[in-house]
């Protein structure tokens, strides 16, 4: 994490006799925040991962079973098929975000940075959906895509594309793509703003010099702007990654907790919700141990992804 550095020492050295008393003061300043943060975020995370090594009915599994929950998750067909399906869907969900959302975001950022009139107006509009609740967005699109009402189908009809009309969310082959695109529609403003901020820090002299040397806009973009944007691209990728592997609301709103039809839109987030909280078919009772194992697998996936990014940005720092 290149942007993070340890707290700097105050510029002046203070007299020693204050030291002990001041340390006590600082601890008192830190304590309330630290207790809440440790008690409700750090410790629960570790304890939840610890729970993945226990089994038992109800809320507090007490029997230690080692890696049995993970083994169960990966080998018992009852869990395995759902788990691999959710993992595969999440990877598709993430891939669509990387390809569509982050490319569109870059495109919009470049257009907004070109200094056209009204750029702040367009910027405001592009960002609107990101401020709204995922659930509300999901419901809204579910209504618009509903064949009974058929707002989208009616639009297609009017455009002479009536043959394309279909029950969008009822088709197992389409629903995951549709849900991913709705999510892209909602979040594209975030990468747009990050790329825009990145583009605006590139000094004009640099692009101007390239232009004088005879580079066209396309070459300037690929040879100068993109290399300078690589740190931002990295941050966008890692944020998309972490967000997508925790996505839940959008599927819950548009396809229910199971990602119907036929689990076609089931993600790691919804799978975790069912195993740990709501109960998975056909058991219909939450299994905290297995649920914790699902969270554990997600955690490891995130850890690997974020480590990759950290190592990557470290190396780049050394190279520069």
């Amino acid at each position: 994490m290149t942007t993070i550095s340890a707290p700097q020492a105050p510029s002046q050295v203070r007299p020693n006799r204050y030291k002990d008393r001041r340390r006590l003061t600082w601890i008192l300043f830190l304590l309330p925040a630290l207790l809440i943060y440790l008690g409700f975020m750090a410790a629960p995370l570790i304890n939840s991962l610890g729970l993945s090594f226990y089994t038992g009915a109800g809320l507090r599994p007490e029997k230690f079973v080692g890696f049995a929950n993970y083994q169960e998750l990966l080998t018992n067909p009852l869990w395995r098929d759902r788990f691999l399906n959710a993992l595969r869907n999440t990877i598709i969900f993430f891939t669509i975000h990387m390809l569509v959302q982050n490319t569109l975001g870059l495109l919009f950022a470049v257009l907004l940075a070109s200094g056209i009139k009204g750029h702040s107006f367009f910027r405001t509009i592009i960002f609107i959906p990101a401020t709204l609740s995922v659930l509300v967005i999901g419901f809204l699109w579910r209504l618009i895509l509903n064949p009974q009402w058929g707002a989208v189908n009616k639009l297609l009809d009017a455009a002479g594309l009536g043959f394309l009309a279909r029950p969008w969310l009822g088709d197992p082959g389409l629903i995951l793509i549709i849900i991913s695109l709705v999510s892209v529609w909602q979040w594209v403003g975030l990468p747009t703003m990050m790329y825009l901020a990145g583009l605006l820090t590139i000094p004009d002299e640099l692009t101007e010099a390239a232009r004088v040397d005879g580079a066209n806009a396309w070459q300037t973009f690929w040879r100068i702007k993109i290399p300078l944007l690589i740190p931002v691209i990295g941050i966008v990728a890692v944020l998309t990654f972490v967000g997508n592997f925790n996505a839940f609301d959008i599927v819950y709103a548009m396809a229910g907790a199971r990602g119907d039809p036929k689990y076609a839109a089931d993600l790691m987030g919804t799978f975790f919700y069912r195993t740990a909280i709501a109960g998975e078919h056909p058991v219909a009772r939450p299994d905290m141990g297995i649920g914790a194992a699902v969270a554990g697998v997600t955690f490891v996936i995130l850890l690997v992804g974020v480590t990759f990014w950290l190592v990557g940005s470290r190396q780049r720092d050394y190279e520069l």
Binding site: P7, A42, L45, S48, L59, V242, N246, A276, A292
Partner: peptide
């Protein structure tokens, strides 16, 4: 203080939802 700062900042990357089961118990 450096350690505590890093502890807090680590929370930026880790989604709290992964700890849901224990938070529920608490």
């Amino acid at each position: 203080s450096t350690f505590i700062f890093i502890l807090f900042v680590a929370g930026l990357m880790i989604p709290i939802r992964l700890g849901t089961i224990n938070i529920f118990q608490i």
